[in-house]
Amino acid sequence: MQQVLFFLLAIFAGVMLPIQAGLNSEIGKAVKSPVYGTLISFLVGTLGLLLYMVLTRANWADIKGGFQLPWFYWIGGLLGAVYVAAIIILTPRLGVALTFGITVAAQMIFGVLMDHYGWLGVPEHPINWMRVIGVTMIIGGVALVRAY
């Protein structure tokens, strides 16, 4: 049952991304800058998270654990900002489907490598033919979306 809930959460998160891309692209156009659009997106997200933490009475002391990590783990927030800015730039030019097709294909390729080598502490899952075929099919899907 827990596995089903995780899959449903992944689907929900996946559906939200194209919606976010459309919304953020319009913000970027309105403020005439993908950087400002990204800033607004992150500010709204930060306010939403703060409100959630207040409403759920989160234990604020738990945040100390983040300060014990090596410095490079903090780059994740910067990578998120670059990703959102790229989506704001790409969506109006490539369309939502192609933008996400390319980014998902890149995520899958790099994700398979990360899994194979266990980079950043993720569980190791060796590259095998089935994974290669799966990634190849995603790339083929991107090619079809691009062509039609």
Results as ranks from 00 to 15, higher is better:
4 V>E: 07
8 L>Y: 05
9 L>M: 13
10 A>W: 07
11 I>A: 14
17 L>A: 15
18 P>C: 08
19 I>P: 05
20 Q>V: 08
24 N>G: 08
27 I>W: 02
28 G>R: 02
29 K>Q: 12
29 K>C: 04
31 V>H: 00
32 K>H: 13
37 G>F: 15
37 G>L: 15
41 S>T: 09
46 T>A: 13
46 T>R: 02
47 L>F: 15
53 M>L: 07
56 T>A: 09
57 R>F: 07
57 R>K: 14
58 A>G: 06
58 A>P: 08
59 N>M: 04
60 W>G: 04
61 A>Q: 12
64 K>H: 14
64 K>T: 15
68 Q>Y: 10
69 L>M: 04
69 L>Q: 01
76 G>Y: 06
79 L>A: 05
80 G>V: 09
81 A>W: 10
88 I>S: 00
90 L>M: 13
91 T>S: 14
93 R>C: 03
94 L>Q: 10
96 V>G: 02
99 T>M: 09
102 I>P: 11
104 V>A: 10
105 A>L: 11
107 Q>Y: 03
110 F>Y: 04
111 G>V: 12
113 L>I: 12
116 H>M: 01
116 H>I: 02
119 W>M: 12
121 G>Q: 05
121 G>M: 06
124 E>M: 13
125 H>V: 10
125 H>E: 07
128 N>H: 05
129 W>H: 09
130 M>Q: 09
130 M>I: 12
133 I>P: 04
136 T>Y: 02
140 G>Q: 08
140 G>K: 06
141 G>I: 05
145 V>D: 08
